[in-house]
Every structure is written in structure tokens, then in C-alpha cells.
Simulated assay, not measured.
Amino acid sequence: MNFYFHDLEKNYFNRFQEDAFHHKDARQRLTEFKETLTKFTHFSNLRPLASLSYAKEFVVHNIVSSIEFDKDAEFFAIAGVAKKIKIFDYAAVVKDSLGINYPVNEIDCTSKISCLSWNSYFKAMMATSDYEGSVILWDAFLGKKLSVYQEHEKRCWSVDFNRIDINLVASGSDDGKVKLWSANMDSSITTLTSSANICSVKFNPASLYHLAYGSADHRVYYYDLRNTRSPLTVFKEHRKAVSYVKFLNRHELVSASTDSQIKLWSTEAPPSCRRSYTGHLNEKNFVGLTANEDYI
């Protein structure tokens, strides 16, 4: 607690200033601070529940590029450069005490997979992006391709389903383009053009129209798709390529960069960097990132 006292003190007084503006009473402020303190002290260590092998050969070339849960958090998929997608039953993986876990389905792909995303409504629908620039929609449990989109000119790094419009998919590529796709159409419906490679693209989970992407030009761009001529906001404080962007909620997103920092941004006016997280020692590789309301 002594080590983190400065952070906790700053958190409390920030709440004090906000509450003075919003005219909250001290009891409510203390209750909210108690919740923060509880979350902070709830966990003290991590322990592995299971170890899964993505490929038979344990070499660097079999990197796992993406791990994502389905809409009910019952199944999760892992994919990477070994040109395979493996689907696992989470409950079975955690329950198995012998450490021998077999996937419920294994899909062989023709290219290295860079990213995957599950549909928030159709349980079996999954999208992937790959090193050939393709975006593919799958039936994850049948291992069947539903649609293949091949408009990107270079490696496609990222793909994401919109949570509001369940047929809308976004992808970002080394060709400096973010493309929007509809599961009901054969070609892209909109293209955002950037001067640098696109490393990560993510929809705002509470919005049909808002999207963020991280770029090799060290910036995070936040767009309203109803006006694609220019971004709503450009966040500029990273010093190297932004490898991932993820939303915590409607108004906050986090970004990871190869500068070894993770930053928390507010999209509310005025847009700002609320906090920087350091600790990773990173030379060139992407640092994986996932987030929810409480934790990063």
C-alpha cells in the first residue's frame, strides 16, 4: 500500500475535484473510492489455469497472434502464423487437471492469421484477417468460409465486428487503409485512408458509428463514420507505432505501443490522455492487450 500511496492519494483528490463540480456529497465520494480500493487490493498474484499448445513445433515461427472469446465467453479461439485456428471450450480447459486439452474444432488456413473477432450475435460467426490481406468470415464450428474479402493490397493486421450492427466488420492493413465490410455485400462499403500502416482497428462497443485505429505513425485516430473526411480526434502522445487499441467503455479507450507504454484516453471533450502505464520492456514486438470496465 505504501508503494502505491501516491496513486491512491491522487485518485482520491481527483474524485474530490470532480465531486465539487458535480455537487456530490462526501459519503458518495468515499463509497466510490472504497470500490476503487477494493478492486486494487482484490488480487495479489496470478497463477496459470492451463497451458495450451498452438502448434506441435515449439519454435518462434509459431507465434500466437490472437486469442478471443465468443459472445458468451464459453468458447475461445487462438490463431497465428502456423496457419491454424483452434477453438477451445473454456470450461473443459479449466476443468481438465491432466493438462491435456484438445480443441473442439481446428481449422486449417491458407495464410498466417494476424487477428480474429467473434460476432456479438451469431455465436458461430467469426472474422479473421491474414498476412495475404484477406478478411474472411467463418462458421467457427463447421470450419466453413462464409465470405472472403480481398481488397487490401498488403498484410491485414486487424479485424473487428461492430456490436450494434452485427453485419458490420472493420479491417486495417499495411496498405494504410481501414475498410468497412458488410456481411451481406461482396465488396467494401467505405474506406478510410491513412498515410501510415494500420496496426489495430476497434469499434466503440456502445456506438454504431464510432471507430478507433492505431497507426505506425505513433497516433490513435478516432472517427465518426457519418463523416469520414477527417477524424474526430487524433491522440499523439505515443513515441512509436500503436500496436493495439481497445475500448474500456463508451468514452474511454486504451492503446498499447511498441514504445513500451499503455495509455488511457478519454474521448469526451476535451479529449485527453488520462494516464500512462509503464513497466513493459519492449524492443520491437507487439504487446498483447485486452480490457474491460475494471482492468487492463
Results as ranks from 00 to 15, higher is better:
residue 1 M to Y: 15
residue 6 H to R: 15
residue 8 L to W: 11
residue 9 E to S: 12
residue 13 F to K: 05
residue 14 N to E: 13
residue 17 Q to H: 13
residue 17 Q to F: 12
residue 19 D to Q: 14
residue 21 F to H: 13
residue 24 K to Q: 05
residue 25 D to I: 01
residue 31 T to F: 08
residue 32 E to A: 08
residue 34 K to T: 14
residue 36 T to H: 06
residue 38 T to G: 10
residue 39 K to I: 04
residue 45 N to D: 05
residue 47 R to E: 15
residue 48 P to T: 12
residue 50 A to E: 01
residue 51 S to K: 07
residue 53 S to Q: 02
residue 55 A to P: 05
residue 56 K to S: 06
residue 59 V to L: 07
residue 61 H to I: 03
residue 65 S to E: 11
residue 67 I to W: 01
residue 74 E to P: 03
residue 76 F to T: 00
residue 77 A to E: 00
residue 79 A to N: 00
residue 82 A to R: 08
residue 83 K to D: 06
residue 87 I to E: 00
residue 91 A to Q: 03
residue 91 A to K: 01
residue 93 V to Y: 01
residue 98 L to G: 10
residue 98 L to W: 02
residue 105 N to Q: 00
residue 106 E to K: 03
residue 108 D to G: 02
residue 110 T to D: 15
residue 110 T to W: 14
residue 111 S to L: 09
residue 112 K to Q: 10
residue 114 S to L: 15
residue 115 C to D: 13
residue 115 C to K: 11
residue 124 A to G: 05
residue 124 A to E: 15
residue 124 A to C: 09
residue 126 M to P: 03
residue 126 M to N: 05
residue 129 S to F: 10
residue 131 Y to T: 14
residue 136 I to C: 14
residue 139 D to A: 01
residue 142 L to C: 04
residue 156 C to P: 14
residue 157 W to Y: 14
residue 158 S to F: 15
residue 158 S to K: 14
residue 160 D to M: 02
residue 163 R to Y: 06
residue 165 D to T: 02
residue 166 I to L: 02
residue 167 N to S: 03
residue 173 S to W: 06
residue 174 D to A: 14
residue 178 V to Q: 13
residue 185 M to G: 04
residue 187 S to V: 07
residue 187 S to K: 05
residue 188 S to A: 05
residue 192 L to P: 00
residue 204 N to L: 07
residue 210 H to V: 02
residue 211 L to R: 01
residue 212 A to E: 04
residue 219 R to D: 06
residue 220 V to T: 15
residue 222 Y to P: 01
residue 223 Y to D: 05
residue 234 V to R: 08
residue 234 V to C: 05
residue 235 F to V: 14
residue 235 F to G: 03
residue 237 E to Q: 11
residue 238 H to Y: 01
residue 239 R to I: 10
residue 242 V to S: 10
residue 247 F to V: 05
residue 249 N to P: 12
residue 255 S to L: 10
residue 256 A to G: 04
residue 258 T to K: 07
residue 261 Q to K: 13
residue 262 I to D: 07
residue 265 W to Q: 02
residue 268 E to H: 14
residue 268 E to Q: 14
residue 271 P to F: 10
residue 274 R to M: 13
residue 276 S to D: 09
residue 277 Y to R: 05
residue 277 Y to F: 12
residue 282 N to Y: 04
residue 285 N to T: 10
